[in-house]
Design a protein around this nucleic acid. Structure first.
Lengths: 205, 205
DNA sequence: CTCCTTATTGGTCATATGGACAATAAGGAG
DNA sequence: CTCCTTATTGTCCATATGACCAATAAGGAG
């Protein structure tokens, strides 16, 4: 095997990136010493060298994917200037019929978190980040006059709880239920933000 | 090893029961040929004899646990006669701080369902059963005049989506968030059933 | 140019998994 | 009481996992 000696930080990043790529395709469960080593094009022992415990690698890969996903979403949201439109854009992607890979990953992470302290921490950090970004958005909208919310953070948590519920259903259950939960989420969000019924209807441009 | 030859149906039930016991304690992931064989006090090969694929056993164990849990809950609920009190009783157990084993199992099942067709089917059956039992309860309450709901099934699905969201959080996240989601679920349920704010407050006897 | 740190490799171990199979004996049928 | 079906056992195999470790060589320091 051709050996190429790299800067440790860089190699470490490469390994995390490889693990994240795998998880994005086939879930956190597909992260193993050997699979990651192959994906990164290095020997399995090297993965072990940087991550004495695979647990750590799983947690970092999840944090990586989650962070990227969060940034992507808010970059898209921020392209809109009107708060109502921002919220509509977000709901449209969060309530899409077929779950994107991050949503599947999140459900997996919720489940694994029970046996996996490091992943649990990463999940907490990610959820907190979403909460505060969303609270910030709601706060802006409220000052702007577009929304009405006494407690933006509370509103954010409320909205995410509903979206989580949708995600859970979307992973496993029927389309009929999905439709009902989607409607419910939209209406509850409108109510939470003091919007008129129908303001967040997704099919409206 | 002492060999005792039993009626096939009985032995099969024993094996499912052993698997269910394991899953109740340590999750569906702890069901394996060997662990179940040990729990049931038989040779691993016998488990294989009754369940050529472990997948089937996992699905049946989950169905067993889920069915028992459903029956238990509604047996308790039915002890109350007043619909509002029935609903309060149910919410109190569903929104309890520490998740009971069935709740953890459900989250696991939602996740595993993606890779596990038989478990997915079992989950669908269970969810449908909950929906229709709850819809029935709501329907009774509506005829009785205690509730007000245009579409009991839709109301049931709405309520369960919120409870699922709570369960998801309860498995992994902080108490602060839990409290917010609990309040939200109670208020949304009151609204869904046409009840006055506070009617379902859990600390009310 | 030489040396030495350490990134990197490849191989080994212990463990757990699902699955298949031949041998055995329990216990009901006749 | 005898026979025969099949429930039951113990064993074996292929595979995948995490983890450990000695040997090697890349590439910067001096």
């Amino acid at each position: 095997m051709v050996r190429r000696r790299k800067n440790p930080e860089e190699r470490r990043r490469e390994i995390v990136a490889a693990a994240a790529r795998l998880a994005g395709k086939t879930g956190l469960g597909s992260i193993s010493l050997r699979s990651v080593a192959q994906e990164a094009g290095v020997a399995p022992g090297l993965v072990n060298h940087y991550f004495p415990a695979v647990e750590q690698l799983v947690a970092e890969a999840f944090a990586q994917l989650g962070g990227d996903d969060l940034r992507d979403h808010f970059a898209t949201i921020r392209k809109e200037s009107a708060p109502v439109q921002q919220m509509r854009i977000y709901l449209r992607s969060a309530l899409a019929e077929q779950p994107d890979s991050m949503r599947l990953l999140a459900v997996e992470a919720y489940y694994l978190a029970r046996y996996h302290p490091l992943l649990s921490d990463a999940l907490t950090v990610l959820v907190d980040a979403w909460d505060s970004e969303m609270a910030h958005l709601i706060d802006e909208g409220t000052r702007n006059g577009a929304f009405r919310s006494d407690d933006p953070m509370k509103s954010a948590i409320h909205i995410f709880a509903l979206i989580d519920a949708f995600a859970l259903q979307a992973v496993a259950l029927s389309h009929a239920r999905l439709g009902i939960v989607r409607e419910m989420t939209i209406q509850a969000t409108e109510r939470e933000l003091g919007l008129a019924k129908g303001s967040l209807q997704l099919d409206v441009a």
